[in-house]
Design a protein around this nucleic acid. Structure first.
Lengths: 168, 168
DNA sequence: TTGACCTTGTTTCATGTGAAACTAAGTTTC
DNA sequence: GAAACTTAGTTTCACATGAAACAAGGTCAA
């Protein structure tokens, strides 16, 4: 099924810039990451979206507010790696659903202090449990050492991509 | 900066379902994958978008057509893990830009056989080279054994997520 | 050969996204 | 103390996404 009539890249000659780079998507890291990530996200989101009616952005905001209350929108953005627009919308939705409450910071009227409501806390606990269970199933075949290594790799790649993004 | 006033989860008691699961986004695999992937994709896409005016979907379609010509849209979808809507639009854009040509399959008039044009081939070669160079920079700190391990992990996770998605 | 069904690919529609413009509040400078 | 600047968060706009409806071709059975 492979190699319908691809480019075997001939052997000898190699006209001009016709180097025909050997790029196979299956072995290309950005592609593999993208496909895997989308599958993981979709599968997990499906669960809490259908059960609790919240999307990924909302869940991320709740996840940080569940551990640390009275954050500003900007702090939520930092901790979730989302931009401020996405946070703004996620928070608006959560306010509307009654999972988050907002009060203006008395010292600086521009910032809004965000916290989970009682209902929000409840949902947070459930979704957090769901999420951890999902992760556990995902990593079921990995023993402790492998998990460490996996996270180590992701950590290194993340640092690296930030470096590369900063340079040019 | 951490632990503004989070939930230290007390120590002894644990009312009702108040198990307060310990979910820290930084240590949560789906989140880590998502953030890393988005950074990688954005950074790389920026390069070829600005230079060659093609987006991620278009690039993926070209990547498979560059190795294997006369594919149907459905086959492109399979090989790129994109759905048929995305492929349809990517192909429409590539046709418009003159990077791809389409001819109806004489045997089955429903399917369209897609191939890169000469210009498409040229762009394919350049973007492929760009992509491979980018990947090389990304993996610069990984020696061969680590790369193998990394891809092995991704492979296992991918299989696992497909299993989990198929079950329920 | 005609009618029921399936398959390929496109279009519609409702939603999510982020860059840039914007509003409101705070700070600085002279 | 008021113009100039900065910062927090929202809104606008233009575009990407995917589920579902659709059109057009193909297959199968009676």
């Amino acid at each position: 099924m492979k190699q319908g009539q691809g480019k075997p890249a001939a052997d000898g000659e190699c006209r001009e810039s016709e180097t025909a780079p050997d790029l196979e998507l299956e072995r290309f890291l950005p592609y593999r990451l993208s496909v895997l990530t989308n599958r993981v996200s979709r599968l997990m989101a499906r669960e809490y979206e259908s059960r609790y009616g919240i999307g990924v952005s909302e869940w991320r905001a709740m996840a940080v507010l569940g551990r640390e209350a009275a954050l500003s929108a900007g702090e939520v953005a930092e901790r979730t790696s989302m931009d401020k627009v996405r946070v703004s919308r996620a928070v608006a939705a959560l306010l509307h659903k009654g999972f988050v409450e907002r009060r203006r910071d008395p010292v600086d009227q521009r910032v809004a202090r965000l916290s989970l409501t009682a209902r929000g806390e409840e949902v947070y606990r459930r979704v957090a449990a769901l999420a951890l269970a999902f992760e556990a199933r995902l990593l079921a075949g990995f023993h402790a050492e492998e998990r460490r290594r996996l996270f180590g790799f992701l950590e290194r790649l993340d640092r690296r991509v930030l470096e590369l993004g900063a340079e040019p």
